[in-house]
């Protein structure tokens, strides 16, 4: 059901989004970030591991897509496949090393790895990546020799976002997903119940990196250019902020968070001018302090309050995780 709701919202975006001030293309970008955020929630929301290094996967994938378009073929299919393969391999290695620690140490390790990738892109690989200028001069992406842009990109992104959301929900409801949530709840008990906790954590990490790679690759197909910002830690930070704003662990919440963040950054910022970051910071603080479950918790509380007034005052629906 929620998948159908999401599908309808996503696919009709080109019709309603301009009415609320969204410019053409911003809807595509929102859905790309939504893919990024859903995958991140499989790691953060389910297992509780907070990574500050996911920009590395997003960025590496973007570079691979860019380089494939530039040097191999303008066809998006080999570019996307290569991006996902390369990112997956890197994620297995990074995950293997960073998941040896938990809590703040894991976060710092992932941050350090992320910065290593950023530094590498700007230094030793700068002949390939274009260094500070980013990777420019990419051809218009194609699909079977047809130019692939604008609306085509939007629908590809929307379909992938819907599939991504569907898969994430299936994972969330599976025994595998239950083990991931058990990692967050009590790792020791899980280990002493005969489960290989390391493998479950690594799987969640790699799955989230695959989502990040799909998003990174789509970003370049959407706008044939790779900005150095894609591998910068600020991209990881933005991802964390949108997840928290939307509601960690709810899958739907982080997507809302992504939409809110990009809408705020691109539309509302025009009204607030330079102050927009300050206002965003205030919104973030308000949410963390008063609504730790993010927008999703806010919506649930609102629903309960309304049901409580309308009904017999016995509205204890029980919040789902």
């Amino acid at each position: 059901m929620p998948v159908i709701v999401f599908a309808v919202i996503a696919l009709t975006m080109p019709f309603w989004f301009p009415l609320v001030g969204g410019y053409a293309g911003l809807d595509t970008k929102i859905l790309i970030w939504a893919i990024f955020a859903i995958g991140f929630d499989i790691l953060l929301g389910f297992t509780g591991y907070l990574s500050f290094g996911h920009a590395a996967f997003f960025g590496v994938s973007a570079y691979v897509t860019g380089l494939m378009l530039l040097h191999y073929s303008a066809n998006i299919i080999p570019a996307m496949i290569a991006s996902v393969i390369v990112t997956t391999i890197i994620a297995v290695m990074v995950g293997f090393l960073t998941l040896r620690r938990s809590g703040i140490y894991f976060s710092i390790l992932t941050l350090a790895f992320g910065e290593m990738f950023y530094a590498a892109a700007l230094s030793i690989f700068s002949d390939w990546t274009g260094g500070d200028n980013g990777l420019t001069g990419l051809p218009t992406p194609e699909l079977f020799s047809m130019p692939f842009k604008e609306n085509n990109v939007f629908y590809l992104v929307a379909v992938l976002a819907i599939i991504g959301y569907y898969i994430a929900r299936r994972i969330g409801n599976s025994p595998f997903g239950m083990m991931l949530r058990a990692v967050k709840s009590n790792q020791t008990r899980l280990e002493f119940t005969g489960l290989d906790v390391k493998k479950y954590k690594l799987s969640a990490f790699v799955i989230s990196a695959i989502y990040a790679s799909v998003a990174g690759s789509l970003m370049v197909i959407y706008e044939p250019y790779v900005a150095t910002e894609f591998v910068h830690w600020s991209t990881s930070g933005k991802l964390v902020i949108m997840s928290v704003l939307g509601g960690v662990g709810t899958l739907f919440g982080p997507m809302i968070g992504a939409a809110f963040m990009l809408y705020f950054e691109n539309v509302i910022s025009a009204f607030l001018q330079e102050q927009w970051l300050l206002v965003l910071g205030l919104v973030f603080m308000f949410i963390v302090i008063f609504l730790p479950g993010g927008f999703v918790e806010g919506a649930q509380r609102l629903k309960r309050a309304i049901a409580g007034k309308a009904g017999d005052g016995n509205a204890s629906k029980g919040a789902s995780e």
Binding site: P175, F176, D196
Partner: peptide, 10 residues
């Protein structure tokens, strides 16, 4: 100890 049954409905 491990199974990647990502799509099984429990």
């Amino acid at each position: 100890s491990f199974r990647a049954n990502l799509f099984e409905t429990p």
